[in-house]
Amino acid sequence: MAFKSLLSVAGADHSDRDVRTAASLCAEVGAHLSVLIMSPPPLVVSPSLLGDGIPEWPRQRAHAIAAGEKPYRPIERFSQDAASLEKTSRQIHKLLRATWRCYDVDVVNCDQASVGDAVRARALCNDVTIVGPALLNDINVGPLVINGSLFDTGKPVLVVPEGAEATLCPRRVLVGWDSRVEASRSVREALNLLAGAEEVRVALVDPETTCAGNGAEPGADIAAYLTRHGARVSVDLLASAGKSAATVLAQHAIDTSADMIVMGAYGNRRLRERLFGGVTRSIVGKPSLPLFLAR
Rank of each mutant, 00 (worst) to 15 (best):
D52W: 07
S39C: 10
P41F: 09
L49N: 07
L25P: 03
G53A: 04
A66K: 12
L33F: 13
G30W: 13
E56A: 13
G51F: 10
P74G: 10
P58E: 05
D52F: 07
R61Y: 01
P74D: 09
Y72M: 03
L43M: 08
R73K: 05
S39R: 09
A22H: 06
R20L: 02
H32W: 11
K70C: 00
Y72K: 02
E56T: 12
E28Y: 10
W57A: 05
Y72R: 05
I37R: 03
P58H: 12
S48V: 15
V29D: 11
W57T: 06
E76M: 08
P71Q: 09
I54D: 00
Y72L: 12
V35Q: 02
A22S: 07
E69V: 00
G51A: 15
S39L: 05
R61C: 01
P74A: 13
S24L: 06
G30N: 11
P74M: 10
P55T: 13
M38L: 15
V35A: 02
A23L: 00
P55I: 14
A67S: 14
K70G: 00
S39T: 12
V45W: 05
V44M: 14
G53W: 05
P42K: 09
A23D: 00
H63V: 14
L25M: 05
V35W: 02
S39M: 06
I75G: 05
L33G: 09
A23G: 00
L25W: 09
E56Q: 06
E76Y: 10
L49R: 15
A64Q: 15
L43R: 11
P47A: 10
L50R: 09
D18N: 08
L49C: 08
M38F: 05
Q60F: 06
T21N: 03
R59C: 01
L33M: 11
V45D: 00
S46T: 15
G51L: 12
I54E: 02
V45A: 04
I37S: 01
I37Y: 00
S48K: 14
G68Y: 07
I65D: 04
R61F: 01
P71D: 07
